[in-house]
Design a protein around this nucleic acid. Sequence first.
DNA 1: TGATATTCTTGCCATTTGGCAAGTTGTAAA
DNA 2: TTTACAACTTGCCAAATGGCAAGAATATCA
Lengths: 190, 190
Amino acid sequence: MNALFKNIYQHPLLSEEDLKAIAAIHQQVIFAKGDTLLKEGRVANEYYILENGLIRAFVHNYNGDEITTDFFTDNNLVIVPTSLFQRSPSQENLQALTDCVLWKVEFNDFQQLFHRLPGFIEWGRLWFTTQLFSVKQRSLDMIMETATNRYLKLLQQKPQIIQHAPLKQIASYLGVTDTSLSRIRKDITA
Amino acid sequence: MNALFKNIYQHPLLSEEDLKAIAAIHQQVIFAKGDTLLKEGRVANEYYILENGLIRAFVHNYNGDEITTDFFTDNNLVIVPTSLFQRSPSQENLQALTDCVLWKVEFNDFQQLFHRLPGFIEWGRLWFTTQLFSVKQRSLDMIMETATNRYLKLLQQKPQIIQHAPLKQIASYLGVTDTSLSRIRKDITA
DNA sequence: TGATATTCTTGCCATTTGGCAAGTTGTAAA
DNA sequence: TTTACAACTTGCCAAATGGCAAGAATATCA
């Protein structure tokens, strides 16, 4: 458990003692495959650290179809920042694709500790910076990479997805139809 | 000038006094059309508030072609967060598309004040939250919207772009070729 | 195990977008 | 004003992707 937190909350300004205080606001929770962690329309009041499992975020488009916006794997921070920090209804849903072991952090507990530890603040800013970068990279990939390359990249980064996420969910994440992704897979194997 | 800062640094926890202190770390700078504010490979040591003008961010792809990643207009915060906060070389370039009036903030000045004012910290987190949301929205638009709709949306949000950014730059931002965007424009007018 | 629903693949064809090249328009400097 | 260069448009055809529907494979649950 300590290794998990040390891995996530890495920052030069965070001491051992700080880490202990941070670890103390985490509480283990279990979700079963198919469970919903956050439903659109509700205000998120917590974030999670995913110790083990696979989770996806999705929204609905005009037709009511689901569009997968993110996949979370081991050691990822599972969060809907807009809802948690603006205290506003979430547009995104969080759903467990496998049984999951997570560590939950309540907003109030986080908020208090956050403002007490300058290192925590710095860590948070770096976390946002990293997030921003990777989301921008995703936009860039949509522009610069072919659908096939986007798929290969995703495989490399999160291979677990293949085993647990149905093709349709992966396809919507990559911005192609399930039909196209099926053909892409065929071409790759050939 | 005060109105500009009040508009940008809006947060319930920021008092008049706080705002004065924040305003004090800003210094006016002028850039001429075509000037480079930040060149790829360099470490950003400042961010800007754009009082007046148009700026774009771009990267280079494998072929050396420019891909526009962002447009900044009046009242926008012009920043490359990864470079500024991770103190790492920027992959992005910042270029003035028109003459620009900006207010520069040096990293060190920002950093000191940031940690002194809890309201500033909260403001910063909300700023990141908003950014994350809009960048995610951009990815979603790449998936859910047609090229034509993406163009119409951009027009609505930043109409200044049309007058000052050449078609090729807008096209790469939208993820289409300049040929296609030219046809899209034609279809819209018809 | 058997029945049912979901997931995945594939063929056919339509639509969208790209690539290239020629020509036109617009702009800026000599 | 002339020249040169960049910006934009357009025609022709190729490539990528989508839409639909049928069928095969797989998962799920009583």
